[in-house]
């Protein structure tokens, strides 16, 4: 009995030893902080000699009454909805072009993909100048055409749209890659009969390509949605959430509450909401959408 068990136990020990270093780090910086955030969100922020004490859902109650929180949630939704469809549509268009036989494809690929390689903070600096009132490129062009300029990033009406346009530019080329990978797996044999029977390009796209690309679209959609909640570099560099919180996003608000006001308890409650939003996005993929789009 013993002789038969021993190798198995050794096998198990080996497996756990292999796993241990990565598991420790994952636990320390993903699972522990997730649970700690949950715990902290039920406590007050320690101040001076006053330690944190249990306050139940008080942080969440405060959050429900916090107009900035609701503004951040609303902005994040607008930002995600404004970024996702155009960047995905552009990505698909780029991929269809790249998959064809256009002249100069290496150049096209480099041009489309380039913004992906740039740091968001560098992109923000370049675009900051486009949006600068009067002196900036956008206003100069408008002036030359005889229109009046405006303070693009300083105006509640336009600030979020400006960030959305910039993000579409930054991300479309990245998503193109996934469509391109998927398109290359679609057999030629599908296109030929369609062409032979005189199917229009639009028909072929709508009835053959697009359904086949659905899993990719979903994958891109989930990633883009996660990015919309995860990336706030450009907010730090361009608007700091302003004017008047018109461009504040949830993670940026967490950053401000946590590191400007040092209100860790409230920041924890906000983080719980952010994590819940990310979980909904990811789980939605598994439980709802995944089932409906598998074409076999």
């Amino acid at each position: 009995m013993r002789a038969r068990l021993a190798p198995d136990i050794r096998h198990q020990v080996h497996a756990w030893l292999l796993l241990l270093p990565a598991a420790l780090l994952l636990g320390l910086f993903t699972h522990y902080p997730t649970l700690a955030t949950l715990w902290q969100s039920a406590h007050s922020t320690p101040k001076g000699f006053r330690p944190a004490r249990f306050i139940g859902f008080a942080q969440y109650a405060a959050m429900a009454d916090d107009p900035v929180f609701w503004q951040a949630i609303g902005n994040n939704l607008v930002y995600a909805l404004g970024t996702l469809p155009p960047s995905i549509a552009l990505a698909l268009l780029m991929a269809l072009w790249m998959n064809g036989r256009l002249a100069g494809r290496p150049f096209l690929r480099a041009a489309y993909f380039m913004p992906t390689v740039l740091p968001m903070i560098a992109v923000a600096n370049i675009w900051l100048f486009f949006y600068t009132p009067d002196y900036g490129l956008l206003d100069q062009i408008l002036h030359a055409l005889g229109f009046a300029g405006r303070n693009w990033l300083g105006d509640r009406e336009t600030v979020l749209a400006c960030l959305i346009v910039m993000t579409i530019w930054k991300e479309a080329g990245f998503f193109m890659i996934f469509y391109l990978a998927a398109l290359q797996q679609i057999p030629v044999s599908l296109a030929e009969p369609a062409a032979f029977e005189g199917a229009s390009r639009w028909y072929y796209f709508r009835c053959v390509l697009f359904p086949l690309l659905m899993p990719t679209t979903l994958f891109v959609l989930v990633n883009a949605a996660i990015n919309a909640f995860r990336l706030v570099d450009h907010i730090v560099a361009m608007t700091k959430g302003g004017p008047d919180n018109a461009s504040i996003l949830l993670l940026f608000y967490i950053y401000e509450v946590g590191f400007k006001f040092w209100d860790t308890g409230y920041a924890a409650a906000l983080t719980v909401v952010l994590v819940a939003a990310l979980a909904v996005v990811a789980l939605g993929q598994y439980f709802f959408l995944d089932r409906r789009i598998h074409y076999q």
């Binding site: 096998h11 198990q12 993670l251 950053y255 590191f259 983080t271 994590v275």
Partner: peptide, 29 residues
């Protein structure tokens, strides 16, 4: 390797794909 708790451990690993360290800034700090 097949070891006790492999599937559960793998699921725990995958959690990080959704909740990256980028998001847990306060606790990680």
């Amino acid at each position: 390797y097949s070891f006790a708790g492999r599937e559960a451990m793998f699921a725990l690993v995958l959690v990080q794909l959704m909740i990256m360290p980028d998001v847990l800034i306060v606790e990680n700090y």
